[in-house]
């Protein structure tokens, strides 16, 4: 059982990394890949160190196993619907300086695969 898929667990970062590897293999095949660039926003709820740790495990035995992992971490940016202010925030408890929690998150929640470099 387990379909040959590596099963480790306890963190959602593992499932995130599995999604990254599956998506890349699906799009560019399983040939060797030199680098992967991801975008993981600071408000995404995903821990970059865990991503790096899981990547080593999940990539092993695939075309990504020697790939360099570049991760951009865009900051959080929000618009306050109460006072109209637009400001940076990196704290998941989101409050405007005016005290309002009624915010539109403009940036920081990204979880994206940007590109890969192939040989």
């Amino acid at each position: 059982m387990g379909g040959g898929r590596l099963s480790v667990g306890g963190v959602h970062e593992l499932a995130i990394v599995e999604s990254v590897v599956d998506a890349i293999v699906e799009k560019v095949g399983d040939g060797p890949i030199a680098a992967v660039r991801l975008e993981i926003g600071k408000l995404s709820g995903v821990v970059v160190d865990s991503i790096r740790f899981c990547f080593e495990i999940v990539a092993n035995g695939t075309g990504l196993q020697d790939a360099r992992l570049d991760i951009d971490e865009p900051s959080g940016r929000a618009y306050c619907r109460e006072c109209g202010d637009e400001f940076d925030l990196d704290d998941p408890i989101m409050l405007c300086a005016c005290g309002s929690a009624d915010l539109d998150i403009l940036s920081g929640e990204q979880l994206r695969i940007i590109s890969v470099e192939v040989h």
Binding site: A23, I114, S115, E117, H119
Partner: peptide, 14 residues
């Protein structure tokens, strides 16, 4: 040399 392929997709798209 390497070649960059833009993917620009959500990780959780699937």
């Amino acid at each position: 040399e390497t070649r960059t392929i833009l993917l620009e997709q959500e990780i959780l798209a699937k």
